[in-house]
Amino acid sequence: MNFGSLALGLGFLLILIGFWGLLTQKNLIKIVIGFSVVDTGVHIIMVGIGYLQGRTAPILDAALMQRTAAAGNQAGASADVGSLIVDPVPQALVLTAIVIGLGITALLLAYVVRLHEQRQSLDISSYEDLKW
């Protein structure tokens, strides 16, 4: 079983569930929750794409160096680190994406607070000013 494609499937399902919430729920806070579920799904997909089966985290500590040396002895030549670790680039991207996701959620919630102050309602169908 490959974790990479499993993670892809899980992320797609989470995105679908989140969109279902975004499109069908009436409550503004529920809509923001749906958005944060979509966010989590996207992050899982990105990490899943970078995953390579049977490899370890991209941290060059003593344990990894031992494994490199052992693999080198078996092969007769020195094996490079690149064949032992997963892709670090998507992880670095997701790291920033999570922090920005919190910022977006906070902004959405601030809009919710302001809207509620104006109309005393959390129901999205009471905000129809832009509807035509």
């Binding site: 970078g50 390579l52 991209p58 490079d80 680190v81 690149g82 064949s83 670790i85 892709d87 670090p88 680039v89």
Partner: peptide, 11 residues
């Protein structure tokens, strides 16, 4: 295998 960018960073 790692793609080219990641392999460069790893090495």
């Amino acid at each position: 295998e790692l793609n080219l960018t990641a392999a460069y960073y790893a090495e």
